[in-house]
Design a binder for these strands. Structure first.
Lengths: 296, 296
DNA sequence: CTGGTCGATAGGGACTGGCTATTGAGCCTC
DNA sequence: GAGGCTCAATAGCCAGTCCCTATCGACCAG
């Protein structure tokens, strides 16, 4: 059985005329005749009673007609649904961000994203790097935005922007008064870090690996905001990604943010997605928008 | 788009494995692969994300799946519905009978019909010959049982049984005492007839055409039963078809039924149906049953 | 009887859907 | 890291299907 046959049957049932039904179906009359007959043979039942000058449905034909009609209608529905989805820059795109990027990057780009990709519904998720990669591979998320590099297997990546690290110190610390700070100036300080799992923790440790700093044993912050509070309370110093010091997140309330002098430590923020993804267009568009936003 | 493609897609969505889906669909894996790809191309949308070691539905695929599933299910429904209808001796058969046959024939045959054709639902209608033929041609009725001959165009007919006419006279009439009656004996009598449209009226007039009878001007019965009442009331005599004198319809209550001596006037009762009907098997079965019932 | 309508039949060509064999990518094991 | 395994994609070929035009045959109307 074939969708086409059902269409022919519905057309015939509605026109009650082989010629008209054929015309409506854009085929020749013999074609439609043959297909109808084939459908009847396949079903083992006569659907149409061919009276001279009149086409009538048999009882069975009457019973089958509504089902055939529904099938035809639903198949059209599939086509139109697919046609709507056809625009690669529409539909949902599930984007995951790590916690040290998401809250600070999103305010800077959502406006532009909404303007440039108005039909794309971004579903946003926040996960640490490892869970994010897992969900990415599992297909729960289509695009990850995180600090590169990460192990890529089956994944593709591109960098979006470089983000400098800044130094956050208590305002009453001697470091707060310095015109310039270098990594080496941190020697002997107590370094406050995020809890395990945050890549920023590893990045900060990496930046400070050459020098001798004490990591606070007792406190490990669960978020950048608590980390910021801890610095303001004078418990130590920390590195903050630059975006986390912009706008409302800058100096003040007992905390002073200092830029490093060259060479400025930094991390690369990038996008990661499955090689096999079906959303390459949408992903590229989002990446381009983020990239151009951050380049300015 | 093709029903088959949708089946393949549903199988793939359920197995999440090209090979298994192909097996379940009784085709080779390359065939299924190719068809899925063709479906995607046709719809202009990717339905499946081919990850290594994993088959995942795209968002569009997820949306389309339930519709595809329903279509597949409904197409199966058509097949099974047709398979059930496949038995030509099942389903409805619309049978029309003329009023001078229906009420008297049906009690004699329904039992046997029900036994021999248990799955056939007979829908019974009563119409005079002309309307019956019209409804037959219009397809409102599949089979007519009436007195032959009738003009056949586009119709086929067969005779079922011959039915003698009997004479109905008031019990106090001289005719009631006669051992034998012949048509000629009716000369000078008042003949009561059914109203226009009943073929029995014409048949009676035909039988009596050779002799001189008076047709009652004032009364024309609307049914055999009122006709019977009129005879019993002494208003005249009439011809009754034999079946209408059997069992509870025989002599009594002021009415006497006499058989004619040879040559016995009679009419032929037959079946009529559209040449183009789709129910030849059922019609033949019904006719055979009636025929054999009445032959006994 | 003739012309017109309508569906069925005949015959031939293009396309589709199916197959087997093979490739190629990714994963696992030794 | 070489080789084997799994799994989907590709290649190449064949057969059946679907469609076409041309024509027939039945029926109806004038």
């Amino acid at each position: 059985m074939n969708l086409r046959d059902l269409r022919y049957f519905v057309a015939l049932a509605e026109t009650r005329h082989f010629g008209k039904a054929a015309e409506r179906s854009y085929v020749s009359q013999p074609t439609l005749s043959a297909q109808i007959k084939k459908l009847e043979t396949y079903l083992g039942v006569q659907l149409i009673e061919r009276q001279p000058r009149k086409v009538a449905l048999t009882e069975t034909g009457v019973k089958i007609l509504p089902i055939a009609r529904r099938i035809v209608q639903e198949s059209d529905e599939i086509v139109s649904l697919a046609r709507n989805e056809h625009d690669p820059l529409s539909g949902k795109l599930k984007v995951g961000l790590i916690p040290t990027i998401g809250p600070y990057l999103l305010p800077l780009i959502t406006r532009k994203l909404r303007k440039q990709l108005p039909r794309l519904k971004l579903m946003l998720y926040e996960h640490q790097t490892q869970p994010l990669l897992e969900k990415l591979r599992a297909g729960d998320i289509d695009l990850g935005i995180l600090a590169l590099p990460v192990p890529l297997d089956g994944l593709e990546a591109r960098s979006l922007y470089d983000e400098n690290f800044t130094l956050a110190v208590p305002t009453n610390s001697p470091l707060a008064k310095r015109a310039h700070v270098k990594i080496d100036d941190l020697t002997g300080e107590t370094l406050l870090l995020l809890e395990d799992g945050h890549c920023l923790r590893d990045q900060a440790l990496d930046v400070c690996s050459r020098i001798d700093v004490k990591e606070s044993e007792d406190y490990r912050a669960t978020s950048l905001e608590t980390l910021r509070q801890m610095v303001a309370a004078g418990l130590g110093i920390t590195l903050l990604p630059e975006l986390a010091t912009r706008g409302p997140f800058g100096s003040g309330h007992g905390l002073t943010v200092k830029e490093f002098s060259r060479p400025v430590p930094s991390r690369t923020v990038g996008a990661v997605w499955r090689k096999s993804t079906a959303r390459t267009d949408a992903i590229k568009a989002v990446c381009d928008t983020v990239h151009s936003s951050m380049a300015a």
